[in-house]
């Protein structure tokens, strides 16, 4: 049970003078129930890659497999897959088009043929799932919500079809710290309580990195790093040469280690950092 790609290659406008290779033989696997981060400089192919994972783009060559089934095998398979893999685009609230929060969230389940009570049930569940009280929010106009609430409605719209995999493209862009925290808690909860597999593509990973099992790095359409979180973030020089940064807490711990202190540097949140420096104090001071 996993989502994986094999030698995925995508060329935009092939056979024309504008042909541009966006992905070059990308092979990876995300195991069921894991959280993976996809990072890389702008233009490295992250969004192109994501759009292959639920069949919005067709590979020029190579394959995408979900549960060992190729998603290109048939149209029926592709449809089945789109229900299981939910994709949340960048700034998803910019695509809102309904008059009420209810209709916005109901769009996908309605298209799957749900009506009346089962439709209402899936909408209510999805809204409550993201922490928005369904009774309070269902009749409000989506444009009159705060940015954080809009983002949650957009995610509820994807959760309404009960996906097994959730893919998010830059999910915290434009959110304030409170909004980012809320989103983080939601993702943590979806992953730990419902074993939803999560792939997050982002430049701002300070919060979500604490959830990640696996980190993948794209550069110029090639997967240049892929491994457990500690392994990838231990290679600061390589990341910086790719124009990428470390999570702030990890960077801070590495700065402390570089000053000659014996500390563990594979640390991603403040509480861990606090404990590690406390231990260092006992040992060294």
């Amino acid at each position: 049970m996993s989502i994986r790609t094999e030698k995925l290659t995508h060329i935009y406008m092939p056979g024309t003078p504008f042909a541009a290779e966006a992905l070059n033989e990308v092979t990876f696997e995300i195991k069921k129930g894991r959280v993976a981060l996809l990072i890389g400089p702008s233009g490295s192919g992250k969004s192109t890659l994501i759009q292959h994972l639920n069949g919005l783009l067709k590979p020029t060559s190579g394959q995408v497999y979900f549960d060992d089934q190729s998603i290109q095998s048939s149209k029926a398979e592709l449809l089945r897959l789109r229900r299981k893999i939910g994709l949340v685009f960048q700034m998803p609230e910019e695509q809102f088009f309904s008059e009420t929060v209810f209709d916005e969230v109901a769009f996908a389940p309605r298209n799957l043929g749900l009506t009346d009570e089962s439709l209402a049930e899936s909408v209510y569940n999805a809204l409550n799932r993201v922490g928005l009280n369904a009774e309070e929010f269902k009749d409000r106009h989506p444009f009159n919500l705060s940015s954080g609430q809009k983002r949650l409605v957009a995610i509820a719209a994807v959760l309404s079809i009960k996906p097994e995999v959730l893919i998010l493209d830059e999910p915290t862009a434009g959110l304030d710290p409170a909004g980012r925290q809320k989103l983080f808690n939601l993702l943590a909860d979806l992953n730990s309580n419902e074993a939803i597999t999560i792939l997050i593509s982002t430049h701002h990973f300070d919060e979500v990195v604490t959830l990640a099992d696996q980190v993948m790095v794209l550069k110029d359409g090639r997967l240049v790093m892929d491994g457990p979180r500690d392994q990838v973030f231990n290679n600061r020089e390589k990341l910086e040469s790719l124009g990428l940064a470390l999570p702030s807490v990890t960077e801070l711990m590495q700065d402390i280690a570089a000053a000659g202190f014996q500390v563990k540097t594979g640390i991603y949140n403040l509480e861990e950092a606090r404990r590690e420096i406390g231990r260092m104090k006992e040992r060294q001071f």
Partner: peptide, 27 residues
């Protein structure tokens, strides 16, 4: 991150200056 961490460390009894804003200051 460094401001937040410095505050936690002060709670744990580290005697740190009050205005730490950059990594190098904490180091």
């Amino acid at each position: 991150a460094v401001v937040e961490l410095a505050a936690l460390l002060r709670q744990d009894g580290f005697n740190l200056p009050t205005r730490i804003l950059h990594n190098r200051e904490l180091v």
